[in-house]
């Protein structure tokens, strides 16, 4: 009963939101580091991808885990957003001004979140399912491995695709610039002394994610990485 109350309360939902958000963030950092292998010779990222594909149990464990995290995160987001929208039936004369000192990122979490969700779906269709640019998907390298290197590079040479990735990643960074400091408070792991360091952590890591992720499509579209196939 008490536990049920907890998960129904706004505080419980925020704790779910924070923990699932943290898990997604952890994955994002790992993913970013993996992506940066695009700057190395093609053997590296193709071998890495082949290694991941060979660990079927692990791969599907992580995929299912991430799916559960995303679903819980969005479920809590929808419940809380509906609750918040209902809490002020009659608005202010100037609603933007009345939310004193609230950052733009903190006021638009649901917007940045929904765009990130659209991006995640597009991204899975693009590089995991292969249905966005099927002409670059089924290729293999000399060693007979899935040619991820070529798929990524040919894909990002399209400025619309790389542009969409860059915009989405900036919005993810925007989402995290608030989320990563908010989560400490949501789970209660904060104090006045820790507040500034945690805000710095959020600013630093959202910046690192944006740079580390966006640099790949940018480097390819400006032909900084420019192999011939």
């Amino acid at each position: 009963m008490l536990l049920l109350n907890f998960f129904r309360s706004s505080i419980g939902l925020k704790i779910i939101m924070a923990l699932t958000g943290l898990a997604l963030f952890g994955f994002t950092v790992g993913h970013m580091v993996g992506n940066l292998q695009i700057f190395l010779p093609k053997e590296h990222i193709n071998a890495y991808a082949a290694f991941l594909q060979s660990q079927k149990e692990l791969l599907w464990g992580v995929r299912i885990g991430l799916l559960v995290m995303v679903v819980l995160h969005i479920w809590a987001a929808i419940k809380l957003t509906a609750m918040n929208a209902a809490a002020r039936p009659v608005g202010y004369n100037d609603p933007g001004k009345s939310a004193t000192k609230a950052t733009l990122a903190s006021r638009t979490m649901i917007v940045s979140g929904v765009i990130v969700l659209i991006f995640i779906i597009f991204h899975i269709l693009h590089f995991t399912v292969g249905s966005v640019q099927p002409q670059f998907y089924g290729l293999h390298d000399e060693a007979g491995r899935h040619d991820v290197y070529r798929m990524v590079i040919e894909g990002f040479r399209n400025p619309f695709i790389s542009g969409f990735y860059v915009i989405s990643v900036v919005l993810l960074g925007f989402h995290l610039s608030h989320g990563l400091s908010s989560m400490f408070r949501s789970v209660g792991l904060t104090s006045p002394a820790w507040r500034k360091p945690q805000e710095l952590f959020a600013a630093a890591f959202s910046g690192i994610i944006v740079v580390g992720m966006a640099i790949v499509p940018i480097a390819i579209v400006i032909r900084l990485i420019n192999p011939t196939f």
Partner: peptide, 17 residues
């Protein structure tokens, strides 16, 4: 907290307003 939830308030998203 139980009483708070019954009143129809919104939830905290740490905006610091």
């Amino acid at each position: 907290v139980e009483a708070m939830e019954k009143e129809g308030f919104g939830s905290c998203t740490n905006t610091n307003s």
